[in-house]
Design a protein around this nucleic acid. Sequence first.
DNA 1: GGATGATCATAT
DNA 2: ATATGATCATCC
Length: 216
Amino acid sequence: MITPPSSTTELLERAWALSGLSIDEIVTRYHVPDHYRHKGWVGQVLEYVLGATAGSSPEPDFVELGIELKTLPINQTGQPQESTFVCAISKIPDAQWQGSCVQRKLNKVLWIPCHQHQIGAPLLWSPSLEQENLLRADWEELTEIIMLGKAEQLTAEQGQVLQVRPKAAHSRILRSDINNNGEATFIVPRGFYLRAHFTAQIIAENYLVCHSRPEH
DNA sequence: GGATGATCATAT
DNA sequence: ATATGATCATCC
Protein backbone atom coordinates (compact mmCIF):
# COMPACT_ATOMS: atom_id res chain seq x y z
CA MET A 1 0.00 0.00 0.00
CA ILE A 2 1.36 3.38 -1.00
CA THR A 3 0.24 6.45 0.94
CA PRO A 4 -1.91 8.99 -0.91
CA PRO A 5 -0.07 12.12 -2.11
CA SER A 6 -0.56 14.98 0.35
CA SER A 7 -0.56 17.66 -2.33
CA THR A 8 -0.92 18.19 -6.05
CA THR A 9 2.80 18.91 -6.18
CA GLU A 10 3.61 15.59 -4.61
CA LEU A 11 1.30 13.77 -7.01
CA LEU A 12 2.98 15.46 -9.98
CA GLU A 13 6.42 14.61 -8.65
CA ARG A 14 5.42 10.98 -8.32
CA ALA A 15 3.94 10.98 -11.82
CA TRP A 16 7.05 12.57 -13.34
CA ALA A 17 9.17 9.92 -11.67
CA LEU A 18 7.29 7.31 -13.72
CA SER A 19 7.75 8.94 -17.11
CA GLY A 20 10.06 7.07 -19.39
CA LEU A 21 9.61 3.80 -17.52
CA SER A 22 7.89 0.76 -18.86
CA ILE A 23 4.97 -0.67 -16.96
CA ASP A 24 7.05 -3.78 -16.23
CA GLU A 25 9.80 -1.66 -14.67
CA ILE A 26 7.21 0.09 -12.53
CA VAL A 27 5.74 -3.19 -11.33
CA THR A 28 9.23 -4.35 -10.32
CA ARG A 29 10.50 -1.13 -8.74
CA TYR A 30 7.37 -0.39 -6.74
CA HIS A 31 6.62 -4.00 -5.80
CA VAL A 32 3.13 -3.87 -7.27
CA PRO A 33 1.22 -6.95 -6.13
CA ASP A 34 0.89 -9.63 -8.80
CA HIS A 35 -2.24 -9.63 -10.82
CA TYR A 36 -3.57 -10.74 -14.14
CA ARG A 37 -2.65 -8.51 -17.11
CA HIS A 38 -6.15 -7.67 -18.18
CA LYS A 39 -7.67 -4.76 -20.12
CA GLY A 40 -7.51 -2.18 -17.34
CA TRP A 41 -4.18 -3.35 -16.03
CA VAL A 42 -2.02 -0.33 -16.82
CA GLY A 43 -4.48 2.09 -15.25
CA GLN A 44 -4.75 0.06 -12.08
CA VAL A 45 -0.99 -0.26 -11.70
CA LEU A 46 -0.61 3.51 -11.97
CA GLU A 47 -3.41 4.06 -9.46
CA TYR A 48 -1.64 1.81 -7.01
CA VAL A 49 1.80 3.35 -7.52
CA LEU A 50 0.55 6.92 -7.26
CA GLY A 51 -1.52 6.21 -4.15
CA ALA A 52 -5.05 6.73 -5.49
CA THR A 53 -7.74 6.45 -2.84
CA ALA A 54 -11.15 6.41 -4.53
CA GLY A 55 -11.26 2.67 -5.14
CA SER A 56 -14.47 1.79 -6.90
CA SER A 57 -16.43 4.77 -5.53
CA PRO A 58 -17.80 7.24 -8.10
CA GLU A 59 -15.28 9.94 -7.14
CA PRO A 60 -12.10 11.36 -8.64
CA ASP A 61 -9.19 9.01 -7.95
CA PHE A 62 -7.49 11.44 -5.61
CA VAL A 63 -10.52 12.50 -3.63
CA GLU A 64 -8.85 15.13 -1.44
CA LEU A 65 -7.12 16.75 -4.40
CA GLY A 66 -10.17 16.48 -6.67
CA ILE A 67 -7.97 14.93 -9.37
CA GLU A 68 -8.94 12.12 -11.71
CA LEU A 69 -6.22 9.87 -13.12
CA LYS A 70 -6.54 8.73 -16.72
CA THR A 71 -4.05 6.69 -18.66
CA LEU A 72 -4.28 7.49 -22.35
CA PRO A 73 -3.10 4.90 -24.85
CA ILE A 74 -1.46 6.66 -27.78
CA ASN A 75 0.22 5.54 -30.98
CA GLN A 76 3.68 6.59 -32.16
CA THR A 77 2.38 9.87 -33.56
CA GLY A 78 0.72 10.79 -30.30
CA GLN A 79 -2.85 10.05 -31.31
CA PRO A 80 -5.10 8.41 -28.73
CA GLN A 81 -5.99 4.86 -29.74
CA GLU A 82 -9.35 4.71 -28.04
CA SER A 83 -12.17 6.65 -26.52
CA THR A 84 -11.83 7.37 -22.81
CA PHE A 85 -14.38 6.10 -20.31
CA VAL A 86 -15.60 8.83 -17.93
CA CYS A 87 -18.28 7.42 -15.66
CA ALA A 88 -21.25 5.12 -15.51
CA ILE A 89 -24.74 6.52 -15.91
CA SER A 90 -26.73 5.82 -12.78
CA LYS A 91 -30.41 5.10 -12.76
CA ILE A 92 -31.25 8.61 -11.62
CA PRO A 93 -29.42 11.03 -13.92
CA ASP A 94 -27.61 14.06 -12.53
CA ALA A 95 -29.89 17.07 -12.80
CA GLN A 96 -27.33 19.75 -13.56
CA TRP A 97 -24.02 19.87 -15.40
CA GLN A 98 -22.42 21.55 -12.40
CA GLY A 99 -21.84 18.81 -9.87
CA SER A 100 -22.62 16.01 -12.30
CA CYS A 101 -20.48 12.92 -12.42
CA VAL A 102 -18.97 13.94 -15.76
CA GLN A 103 -18.26 17.52 -14.66
CA ARG A 104 -16.57 16.44 -11.41
CA LYS A 105 -14.48 13.76 -13.09
CA LEU A 106 -13.26 16.03 -15.86
CA ASN A 107 -12.79 19.16 -13.77
CA LYS A 108 -9.18 18.21 -13.10
CA VAL A 109 -7.50 15.28 -14.81
CA LEU A 110 -3.99 13.92 -14.57
CA TRP A 111 -3.45 12.48 -18.06
CA ILE A 112 -0.67 9.94 -18.37
CA PRO A 113 -0.01 8.98 -21.99
CA CYS A 114 1.16 5.46 -22.58
CA HIS A 115 2.64 4.00 -25.75
CA GLN A 116 3.36 0.27 -25.94
CA HIS A 117 3.48 0.08 -22.14
CA GLN A 118 5.94 2.99 -21.94
CA ILE A 119 4.78 5.76 -19.61
CA GLY A 120 4.93 9.30 -20.93
CA ALA A 121 5.06 12.74 -19.35
CA PRO A 122 2.07 13.50 -17.12
CA LEU A 123 -0.25 16.41 -17.81
CA LEU A 124 -2.45 18.06 -15.20
CA TRP A 125 -5.37 19.39 -17.22
CA SER A 126 -8.62 21.24 -16.71
CA PRO A 127 -11.03 21.93 -19.56
CA SER A 128 -10.74 25.31 -21.23
CA LEU A 129 -13.88 27.42 -21.36
CA GLU A 130 -14.42 26.26 -24.91
CA GLN A 131 -13.88 22.62 -24.04
CA GLU A 132 -16.20 22.81 -21.07
CA ASN A 133 -18.88 24.41 -23.23
CA LEU A 134 -18.61 21.51 -25.68
CA LEU A 135 -18.77 18.96 -22.91
CA ARG A 136 -21.69 20.66 -21.21
CA ALA A 137 -23.68 21.00 -24.43
CA ASP A 138 -23.27 17.30 -25.21
CA TRP A 139 -23.96 16.30 -21.62
CA GLU A 140 -27.17 18.36 -21.53
CA GLU A 141 -28.39 16.94 -24.82
CA LEU A 142 -27.64 13.34 -23.83
CA THR A 143 -28.93 13.73 -20.29
CA GLU A 144 -32.20 15.18 -21.53
CA ILE A 145 -32.77 12.10 -23.66
CA ILE A 146 -32.06 9.89 -20.66
CA MET A 147 -34.39 11.94 -18.45
CA LEU A 148 -37.15 11.60 -21.01
CA GLY A 149 -36.90 7.85 -20.63
CA LYS A 150 -35.37 7.40 -24.08
CA ALA A 151 -32.00 6.03 -22.96
CA GLU A 152 -32.63 2.96 -25.06
CA GLN A 153 -32.67 5.12 -28.19
CA LEU A 154 -29.27 6.64 -27.46
CA THR A 155 -26.47 5.60 -29.81
CA ALA A 156 -22.76 6.33 -29.73
CA GLU A 157 -23.21 8.61 -32.74
CA GLN A 158 -24.79 11.33 -30.65
CA GLY A 159 -22.59 13.98 -29.07
CA GLN A 160 -19.69 15.96 -30.54
CA VAL A 161 -17.07 15.19 -27.89
CA LEU A 162 -18.97 13.14 -25.34
CA GLN A 163 -20.86 9.97 -26.24
CA VAL A 164 -22.91 7.29 -24.51
CA ARG A 165 -22.02 3.64 -25.01
CA PRO A 166 -22.78 0.35 -23.26
CA LYS A 167 -20.86 -0.25 -20.06
CA ALA A 168 -21.44 -3.70 -18.67
CA ALA A 169 -19.85 -7.10 -18.30
CA HIS A 170 -21.78 -8.17 -21.41
CA SER A 171 -24.85 -7.26 -23.42
CA ARG A 172 -27.20 -9.57 -21.53
CA ILE A 173 -26.78 -7.60 -18.31
CA LEU A 174 -29.91 -5.53 -17.82
CA ARG A 175 -30.83 -2.88 -15.34
CA SER A 176 -34.33 -1.75 -14.45
CA ASP A 177 -35.36 1.56 -15.98
CA ILE A 178 -38.41 3.67 -16.78
CA ASN A 179 -39.18 4.23 -20.47
CA ASN A 180 -40.78 7.28 -22.06
CA ASN A 181 -44.25 5.88 -21.42
CA GLY A 182 -43.50 5.68 -17.73
CA GLU A 183 -43.39 1.90 -17.85
CA ALA A 184 -40.81 -0.25 -16.10
CA THR A 185 -38.32 -1.76 -18.58
CA PHE A 186 -34.78 -3.10 -18.64
CA ILE A 187 -31.86 -1.57 -20.50
CA VAL A 188 -28.17 -2.30 -20.91
CA PRO A 189 -26.20 -0.10 -18.49
CA ARG A 190 -24.39 2.71 -20.24
CA GLY A 191 -21.58 5.12 -19.55
CA PHE A 192 -20.17 8.41 -20.79
CA TYR A 193 -17.05 8.30 -22.95
CA LEU A 194 -14.82 11.00 -24.42
CA ARG A 195 -14.33 10.68 -28.15
CA ALA A 196 -10.74 10.06 -29.23
CA HIS A 197 -10.61 13.29 -31.24
CA PHE A 198 -11.28 15.25 -28.05
CA THR A 199 -8.38 13.71 -26.15
CA ALA A 200 -6.27 14.05 -29.30
CA GLN A 201 -6.80 17.80 -29.11
CA ILE A 202 -5.65 17.83 -25.48
CA ILE A 203 -2.47 16.02 -26.45
CA ALA A 204 -1.88 18.28 -29.46
CA GLU A 205 -2.25 21.42 -27.37
CA ASN A 206 0.06 20.31 -24.61
CA TYR A 207 2.75 18.13 -26.11
CA LEU A 208 5.26 18.46 -28.90
CA VAL A 209 3.91 15.78 -31.17
CA CYS A 210 4.43 14.62 -34.70
CA HIS A 211 1.59 15.91 -36.86
CA SER A 212 2.69 14.12 -40.00
CA ARG A 213 3.82 10.61 -40.66
CA PRO A 214 7.41 10.05 -39.56
CA GLU A 215 9.99 9.59 -42.32
CA HIS A 216 11.62 6.23 -42.65
C1' DG B 1 -8.95 1.86 -40.50
C1' DG B 2 -11.97 3.93 -37.31
C1' DA B 3 -16.00 3.95 -34.61
C1' DT B 4 -19.67 1.38 -32.27
C1' DG B 5 -21.30 -1.96 -29.47
C1' DA B 6 -19.51 -5.84 -26.55
C1' DT B 7 -16.68 -7.54 -23.22
C1' DC B 8 -12.93 -8.65 -19.43
C1' DA B 9 -11.10 -8.22 -14.54
C1' DT B 10 -11.44 -6.32 -9.83
C1' DA B 11 -13.48 -4.05 -5.59
C1' DT B 12 -17.14 -3.24 -2.44
C1' DA C 1 -25.53 -5.13 -8.31
C1' DT C 2 -22.82 -1.41 -9.68
C1' DA C 3 -18.87 1.10 -9.38
C1' DT C 4 -13.90 1.17 -10.94
C1' DG C 5 -9.90 0.23 -14.57
C1' DA C 6 -10.38 0.08 -19.71
C1' DT C 7 -9.64 -2.61 -24.45
C1' DC C 8 -11.60 -6.02 -27.67
C1' DA C 9 -14.01 -7.38 -31.88
C1' DT C 10 -16.91 -6.60 -35.36
C1' DC C 11 -19.04 -3.85 -38.85
C1' DC C 12 -19.17 -0.28 -41.99
